[in-house]
């Protein structure tokens, strides 16, 4: 019993220590941002790696999510004689929630995991250490451009997700079910507000991009320098980033749409 308590306490302390180190890392990354911005080429390369290469999965999933929303929304709303509101339902769900959240989850799985593995392997193979010995700060040269790239990419991906998702909903509702296109759009336009919905959704995705990039890099940078350690860090990175995104989504939603 005392063993259990001791083990629990030990784990708590370890968790707190990890949190502390993560906070220290993010502060150092933020401090490194101005220096990193002076080398835009490094950032562009990373936007390509985490952003452009995630486009396919984002476009395909958002199209399907939008189509499912259109179909389910129609089945539910038609019972209340409000089938025309399906556009509103699709757009609000996407812009407020699914766009930012699903994008961040997909990003954590697709790009975050590769960031963790890349940084973890660079650490395990002493590349980061040798960089330090060459008087090059790995936080500034390796981590900061990746952090900035995540921060740029996730909001852009989320916006694309929402737009393509609405298109998917349109294809189903108007193309398949035969709802009037004018009613679809005008219902949507009267219900969706730029400030309350689109801006708030955008703010969410900025926060998610920050958190997903931060957690992925932190896990890689703190990975135990063995192949097992790197693979564990990659898994934990995706799990923690996903949990953080969902938890933060609740908080932000409560704050924004009270």
């Amino acid at each position: 019993m005392t063993d259990l308590v001791a083990a629990l306490g030990q784990r708590t302390l370890l968790g707190l220590q990890g949190l502390g180190r993560a906070v220290v890392l993010v502060l150092r990354l933020l401090a490194a941002v101005p220096a990193a911005l002076r080398r835009p080429r490094l950032i562009i390369e990373q936007v390509y790696a985490v952003g452009v290469l995630s486009m396919v999965i984002i476009v395909v999933s958002s199209l399907f999510v939008g189509m499912v929303l259109g179909l389910q929304g129609y089945y539910t709303l038609v019972d209340f004689g409000a089938a025309e509101s399906v556009g509103t339902l699709v757009a609000l769900s996407l812009v407020r929630e699914l766009g930012p959240v699903v994008t961040a989850l997909l990003f954590a799985g697709r790009a975050g995991s590769s960031l963790t593995a890349e940084v973890g392997l660079m650490k395990a193979t002493e590349q980061l250490s040798s960089m330090e010995m060459m008087a090059v700060d790995p936080e500034r040269r390796i981590l900061a451009p990746r952090f900035i790239a995540s921060f740029i990419s996730v909001p852009l991906l989320a916006v694309v997700f929402s737009a393509v998702g609405v298109l998917g909903g349109y294809l189903v509702a108007v193309g398949m079910i035969g709802i009037d296109a004018g009613a679809f759009w005008s219902n949507m336009q009267s219900a969706v507000s730029v400030r309350d919905d689109i801006l708030n959704g955008f703010i969410k995705s900025v926060v998610f991009g920050f958190v997903a990039g931060w957690i992925a890099l932190h896990k890689g940078y703190e990975a135990e320098p063995t192949s097992q350690g790197v693979s564990r860090a990659t898994t934990m990175g995706v799990v923690h980033a996903s949990l953080a995104v969902l938890g933060l989504d609740f908080l932000l939603t409560a704050l924004m749409f009270d």
Binding site: A91, S162, M188, Q189
Partner: peptide
């Protein structure tokens, strides 16, 4: 698109 078409 979000601003013009979806939010009007």
């Amino acid at each position: 698109v979000l601003a013009l078409q979806i939010a009007g």
